[in-house]
Design a protein around this nucleic acid. Structure first.
Lengths: 352, 352
DNA sequence: ATTAGCACTCAGCAAGGTAGAGTGCTAACA
DNA sequence: TGTTAGCACTCTACCTTGCTGAGTGCTAAT
């Protein structure tokens, strides 16, 4: 079994660095010239033949230079790549874009996604998870006008949802408030899964016989929960992909954009990834579960508040992406989100 | 000045119909064969030369057939085209997709946009207007937890917005409710523009010296109003464009998708169009104000509740779009929206 | 007024030819 | 034994050329 000696590593790194920035297959001459190995192209050629045999690089056709294979990128990401930092300008730009007041998690994610795609020049995604384990913080029923009320649900993960309901015109605001308080007392502190028949019974008994107010409100609550529950996906910068030669083919483009249109699929994908620990996950080409993503790489991470995973953010680009920069951006934004969410929920974020 | 006699009209219509369905320049032979004019291609040729001179059709190059000019489409839309209806399947499909409960205007628009792009196979847009003239219906402040409250604003146009605020921990829920009622009494019924210093003074006097609760709430209200105010744009089906040969060129595609990414620009465009009366507006090619849309046509309409324009919906596609079908779809969806909005706001929708 | 006929134009495609980048192999060299 | 110069070979990208077919405009006959 051949091993990667130091020189092979350096050559591999040269090839990948070069290919990432030019998108052209890199030949032995280029490697010998650009990076001062003090070696002739012939020697490099021998080494490259070895690297190809080991599966790190491949030739698109006989008389072309080499391009990295998925395995090559994998090795690069794990061992070769040097970590980079966002530039001061980039950080300033992020700060200025995100300076506006944000008061709901989903707005925050939208912005984060926009900023990430702007910085990386790739496509970025942000998803809220299926929040089965969110804890209800506040439930309120507020009169809007005669016969209409608004049910509002706030969770500990920062989501605020509301649902308009119709109620009997005879219900007085005072009674509505009374009922609202009952709902709040009985439901707040529970996770969504913990709302079951016994709890509803309790509320029913407390309210008394005014059945025609219980059901509309309950429906409203359920509706809010469904909204919270449903994983939303924010996508930004799909157009960026048009700037990369790997997508200059219309069919490739169609495949990619078609995939990006399937929000539910992406949501599920991101939520699966959110199972992982809090680190950054990189899936390269074929490593992706989705067949159509085999020419793309995905860099994702999750962010938590306390112990709760609040969501996943990520960047998707061609396998030939600038991993180092994307990694830096994703990491930066992750921390940024955690900060903002803490601001949003107050320091008193209740860890379960 | 040459006039369009009946035969010329029929020939023009043949050419446009043909071109809309095939995207290929139409030659004299094709016209003579497909549609039984009982004329030879040579005669058609003479007529086509006339039509070209009059500016209704043009040749992409010398030895090709003719394609409609913008002026040709305009004449077609105004005089030649026969109105079409959505098929039963399409209507059923719309009904089934939109059957889910909808409780906020913006969700409705999102769905409408999705359905429209699905039916027409083009890109569809829906925009909420800059609602300077929205009337506030309800303002409520609801405690969430110690030191945090939620400001909720509902308008007569069906928008519901909320903003999380921080307040002093010493404020009791009862006092908060008292303040909430004052805000509600003083502000509801006003348009956004009518909220000015005198009104705020009044509130200030009623609340008394607890300054540290007035400002946070006021900020919350302003924040909600800003959200209502800002025209949001929902886009769906941009990917559909990849199926049309006019966008098989990557540069064309980039131009189009780049344009679609500029949500503010589109929002402004749609809002300008919302000035028009309630009919359907069709802008063809060069007629569009935006230079980059000169290869596209835009079919829009606005929908009102009472006398208030609530927003604009539209479909954008290549100038070679199926105008008849798009028109039918846009009209259908417009009515659908009006129905849904009335359901949403209750029949008691207050006309000013 | 209509049409047959003809010469002309031009995009699109296929065939052939060339240039250049890059490779693998071999033999010589330190 | 590792390195290198040299060379024959391969293949893509690009250009040129020539051909075909669709379509036109014009003219002269009906």
């Amino acid at each position: 079994m051949m091993l990667l000696d130091d020189r092979k590593k350096r050559i591999l790194q040269s090839i990948i660095d070069d290919y990432i920035s030019t998108a052209e297959p890199v030949g032995s001459r280029t490697v010998a010239r650009k990076h001062e190995f003090g070696l002739s192209s012939a020697t490099i050629r021998n080494e490259m033949a070895d690297l190809e045999e080991m599966g790190f690089i491949k030739q698109p056709h006989t008389s072309a230079g080499r391009i990295p294979s998925d395995q090559g990128y994998r090795f690069y990401v794990d061992q070769l790549m040097k970590a980079s930092q966002l530039t001061v300008e980039e950080i300033l730009s992020i700060k200025s874009t995100m300076d506006v007041k944000i008061n709901e998690l989903n707005q925050l994610l939208k912005q984060v996604s926009a900023v990430m795609s702007k910085i990386t020049k790739y496509t970025s995604m942000a998803a809220t998870p299926e929040r089965k384990n969110s804890i209800l913080k506040t439930i309120q029923v507020v009169p809007v006008e005669r016969g209409r009320a608004l049910v509002i649900v706030v969770t500990n993960s920062g989501a605020v949802k509301n649902s308009l309901i119709s109620i009997s015109e005879t219900v007085s605001p005072e009674f509505l408030m009374y009922v609202s308080n009952i709902f709040n007392e009985k439901l707040s502190g529970l996770t969504i899964d913990q709302i079951n028949m016994p709890v509803i019974r309790e509320i029913e008994i407390l309210i008394g016989p005014s059945q025609d107010i219980l059901m509309p409100i309950l429906n409203g609550v359920v509706d809010c929960i469904n909204q919270i529950d449903s994983s939303e996906v924010y996508l930004e910068g799909t157009v960026n992909m048009l700037n990369y030669p790997e997508f200059s083919d219309v069919d490739k483009l169609k495949e990619f954009l078609g995939l990006m249109d399937k929000k539910e699929l992406l949501g599920r994908l991101l939520n699966e990834l959110s199972q992982s620990n809090g680190n950054v996950t990189i899936s390269i080409g074929e490593e992706n579960k989705i067949e159509k993503m085999k020419d793309c790489s995905l860099v994702t991470t999750t962010y938590k508040v306390g112990n709760i995973v609040i969501g996943t953010i990520g960047v998707i680009g061609p396998t030939r992406m600038d991993y180092s920069k994307v990694l830096a951006a994703v990491n930066f934004m992750k921390n940024r989100i955690v900060d903002e969410v803490e601001k949003l929920l107050g320091k008193s974020s209740d860890d379960p």
